[in-house]
């Protein structure tokens, strides 16, 4: 009992004294970088729509593919992690962050071989996103079916 009390007191003190994240500063950085990535996305979209004259339904797909490519490329060049250290959620949330979370483990596990290294670890971080994404879309699909 005495030990638990002491531990609880210590945890409380650590909570109070620990250096805190600079939330306001991080929010601004995330907003700026996240916003910039979205602006680039919009530029790609306009390029697809007005210059390449792609049909309306393909424009979104084209933009996603392009952004994922950029995210993967910047990860491979060792730039995306630096952007991420600055921007936090600003570079994690957009689709480029998803690309980063797939390419990063793939690069890292190259030393363990192509099958059990690269392939087995490819979705180590992105896997949960896919599981929840696919899972929730099945539920929504069933609801649509049920509600007509």
């Amino acid at each position: 009992m005495e030990k638990n009390k002491k531990a609880a007191q210590y945890q409380q003190r650590v909570k109070e004294l620990a250096p805190k994240s600079k939330t306001a500063q991080m929010l601004i950085k995330a907003f700026l970088v996240g916003g910039l990535i979205c602006c680039i996305g919009q530029a790609i979209r306009d390029f697809a729509q007005f210059t390449l004259k792609l049909p309306e339904k393909d424009v979104g797909t084209f933009t996603s593919i392009f952004l994922v490519f950029l995210g993967g490329l910047l990860t491979g060049l060792g730039v995306y992690d630096k952007i991420g250290k600055f921007a936090g959620a600003g570079s994690v949330v957009p689709i480029t962050g998803f690309a980063n979370s797939v390419v990063a483990p793939a690069m890292e596990h190259r030393s363990e071989g192509l099958v059990l290294g690269v392939c087995a670890n490819l979705f180590k971080l992105a896997g949960p996103v896919l599981v929840y994404g696919v899972g929730s879309s099945i539920i929504v699909g069933l609801l649509y079916l049920w509600l007509g």
């Binding site: 952007i83 991420g84 570079s91 994690v92 990063a104």
Partner: peptide, 13 residues
């Protein structure tokens, strides 16, 4: 932790 090329922010502690 995470793969090295993952862009994450480490907490101040």
């Amino acid at each position: 932790r995470f793969p090295l090329e993952m862009g994450t922010v480490s907490p101040p502690t």
